[in-house]
């Protein structure tokens, strides 16, 4: 049996809102040691999502035996919208479940709401992602990256990222013109999450589809910072830290014709 209680429903709500537009169906793997893990790839096979909600993200977590919950995220999202952000949220499943029980508890009122979501058998291949060495890594405020991804998409369907040891440059060239934003590393002692950190083994220039970057920044509400790891001619990793765990996106770059 699985029983996981979140202190606040908002965490799972934000996670599902962050991924449901990229992947519709996915398997949630549940185990006592790893908590909940998900790997899912979008239909175009360009964007991969790797989610880990450690048991530390829950107020209470027990999973007697390993379980796979096949979920339609659109349906789960509808059910999660029934609860308030501050409610306790408990998810419960039997050992061979055909449904997931979702329970919201209002902390002040004596109100308990229960929903049952039908589960599905989902066939999905799992990709092996080795721990890669990256050419460079940037950590920056998540909202700042989101603004760049959204603003630059209005100019071009591609966004080029150029990293050198003393700057990161976002470049967009489109029909109406072009634009670039340059950020320099700095440390904000009072608000560390406002800092921009660049770690560099070698400079990198990569181009990504603006559409996919805009899917990724839907995770902005989850974390104050985002870490972007880039390697020449390889998928980029965008990581949002959870209180205990992470949401990672792997995005394949674009190549010159």
């Amino acid at each position: 049996m699985l029983e996981g209680k979140f202190e606040e429903a908002s965490l799972l709500k934000k996670v599902i809102e962050s991924i449901k537009d990229s992947v519709k169906l996915c398997n949630f793997n549940c185990s006592q040691s790893k908590g909940i893990t998900v790997q899912a790839i979008d239909d175009s096979r360009v964007l991969l999502i790797a989610l880990k909600i450690d048991s530390g993200s829950f107020q209470e977590f027990r999973c007697d035996r390993d379980l796979v919950l096949g979920l339609d995220l659109e349906s789960l999202s509808k059910i999660l919208k029934q609860g308030n952000n501050e409610d306790y949220l408990t998810i419960i499943a039997e050992d061979s479940p055909d449904s997931l029980l979702v329970v919201f508890e209002d902390k002040k009122k004596d109100r308990i709401s229960e929903f049952s979501l039908k589960l599905m058998d989902i066939d999905s291949d799992v990709l092996t992602i080795d721990d890669m060495e990256h050419d460079c890594s940037i950590t920056m405020p998540a909202y700042e990256f989101a603004k760049i991804a959204r603003d630059m998409k209005t100019l071009s369907e591609s966004l080029q990222i150029i990293i050198t040891k003393d700057s990161v440059k976002f470049n967009a060239e489109g029909q109406i013109g072009s634009g670039s934003i340059i950020l320099k590393p700095h440390t904000d002692m009072e608000k560390p999450d406002e800092s921009i950190k660049i770690e560099l083994n070698q400079p990198v220039v990569l181009t990504f589809g603006a559409k996919y970057l805009n899917d990724i920044v839907k995770a902005t509400a989850l974390s104050s910072t985002v870490t972007i790891k880039l390697t020449d001619k390889a998928p980029a990793l965008f990581e949002y830290r959870l209180p205990s765990g992470y949401l990672r996106y792997y995005l394949a770059p674009k190549f010159d014709d």
Partner: peptide
């Protein structure tokens, strides 16, 4: 610009 790459070229299916 450019041709969109796919993840299959980089990650193995297990």
């Amino acid at each position: 610009g450019g041709v969109q790459g796919r993840l299959d070229g980089f990650f193995k299916v297990s």
